[in-house]
Design a protein around this nucleic acid. Structure first.
Lengths: 200, 200, 200, 200
DNA sequence: TATGAATGAGGGTTCATTCAT
DNA sequence: CATGAATGAACCCTCATTCAT
């Protein structure tokens, strides 16, 4: 990689990081491109050399940050040395919920305008070299399980949407229950969903 | 009610309806107050006689439309003469999902910026005289059931969030499965969640 | 005076008093007619039955309040039983400055847009029955003096403008000196101006 | 200075000059930013690149124009070769009054909302390179005088406020006397004030 | 590549004034 | 006389985007 290319990459990452900080602190609607370039210390025109508009940068960030989050969870899972499939899913759930709870700006950011489509893309199309494909991780988890699962994608879909939407409400508004109180309900329900999808 | 008051009410409803049409067709961000008043055929200042800003009118509409939707479902449920609690919930689920599927603008509108808090408010604070309190309907359903349920509010929360978020993805993006394909999965899962909350 | 006329007068005074409170507390520019009628508890249209616009009401108030202030000073002067002309002027100066210092809203209100022309009119054209003509008071003071004065009007003009503009600065901004510190300078200077106008 | 910087400076001066013309001809309240940019031939947004709002540009203009006026007077004074302190002050008074009399728009502009604080700032904080500090000029005049003066700042305050407020009335309304008739009174009074502040 | 001054359409909002009731 | 809903021109200000340097 040439010096120019490196410089280019640095500028781009600078803009991405700066945007992320602003998006998570003041929200995307209230963040202007002026804000971004000023904080990043580059000229307005430069922004347009790298991104189409604010929403372009947002989509890339959602993908990257979601991917990152799940990768961290997968890493932690590996270290934890958990064997059972159900336990693995619960572990990831806990990890992700705790992380989002500690970083509400991130939660607000990736949740708004987040659809399964965007999400799946985030988890299956690595943005940077360090990002890996979460679907692979998931598939390996399924293979390693002691039993077969029918419709594993739909199952994951149900679980993620359930956790995501209830978690959002609990973390952001403590309503109708706090995250602490929600977790046992979620764990019970998620385990049950998994069992439901076990091939007998 | 005087002629003036009637006229006033008409203007307000006119603005509400016009806003709703615009919000559901082009989205709230792209709808300006200029758009609304122009389409409604009133002066700009008139808008501010009735609403604080765009988000004021949006919140009232979300509340009203959500309430309306659930009331229609409750009405249809009554006519259907279903006795079993589980069957009732599934009926409402089907009704609401079909309705939203037929009216994607409405779905996009009430789903964005929708939190459980807003939602619950919508369902428990009737806006117009015809609106009634959905939580009453729900509570009666629970009382009429042949069994007791623990934490009925959390249970409803889990069910609504699960149906809402998966339904949104299926209806709007047909991803990862179409609504038609999603429904059996949802029905199975919802029934299971209910059983899980039955006091034995 | 008929009952209707009385009622009319009451409404008018109500509007005058309300306007004065608003003008002196938030300034004339930031006071809207809506503010006035709301606080006064009358309808918007009613305002226009009594006044042409905001500036109409302002001019009447400046005249009335200035007149009132000088009349109070004149009353106090009479009670004080001071004989010497110089001492009388100084007494009025002190009285007016103290009053304005205690009521900065009033000072800001009557000083802004205040010209000698408006001021003189205020002092010579009584607005209400209780208002009397200050120029008469002043003329009598001159007649009662032990000496003749040349150009008494110009002399009064110089004195009032000097006191008014330096007093405004001291009271409002404590700059370049506080009112307390300004007074000895003013007294000395005013006495000297008067002596200058004595016919030898 | 680069071409861009020059262009920038030109645009700014263009806006300043245009604003000044409008402020002095139709008043600041009736001058909108739309008026300014239209007359200046630039886009609306351009205004906000250089100034915060209308009052920002006004304050800068008051400072600049006041400074300019006093500097002209000081220049003329130097050329006149006057030695006596009293005569110098009278010379400046005459110069400034004549200038304001010939340019009533300027008078109206710098007098409104003018306080000693703003004024002093205008005279002591040069805006452009050609502006110099008037307080230095004044201090040198005092040092060069044949006698000592007590409280020279308060003395200047009294004199400026006296001249300013009476001059305003005479020039703008010819009331109670014309400027021509006012001048002898002012000269007499100002000389007397100075003598009063001489240390014996 | 990188800049950043300039743009100008369009946003939300205010408010003096009118007039049918 | 009194009302107050309705008006709509005018306001200030933002900001995504362009383009000459």
């Amino acid at each position: 990689m040439g010096k120019a290319d490196q410089n280019k990459k640095l500028k781009m990452e600078n803009l991405l990081n700066t945007s992320f900080e602003l998006f998570t602190s003041k929200g995307i609607n209230k963040t202007s491109i002026s804000d971004i370039v000023e904080k990043a210390g580059v000229a307005k025109g430069t922004f347009y050399l790298y991104f189409k508009d604010k929403y372009d940068i947002r989509n890339r960030l959602i993908a990257h940050k979601s991917s990152q989050l799940f990768m961290q969870a997968a890493d932690a899972l590996e270290k934890a040395g958990i064997q059972d499939f159900e336990d693995k899913i619960i572990f990831i759930m806990d990890y992700v919920l705790d992380e989002l709870s500690a970083n509400k700006g991130l939660l607000a950011f990736i949740y708004k305008d987040l659809s399964w489509a965007v999400f799946k893309r985030a988890l299956t199309t690595p943005m940077t070299d360090s990002d890996i494909d979460f679907s692979e991780v998931y598939n390996r988890m399924i293979e390693d399980a002691d039993y077969k699962l029918r419709d594993p994608e739909v199952m994951l879909f149900l679980i993620i949407e359930l956790i995501g939407s209830t978690g959002y409400s609990s973390i952001m508004y403590d309503d109708p229950v706090s995250l602490r109180d929600l977790k046992p309900h979620l764990e019970e329900t998620v385990r049950m969903i998994i069992r439901q999808y076990k091939e007998n």
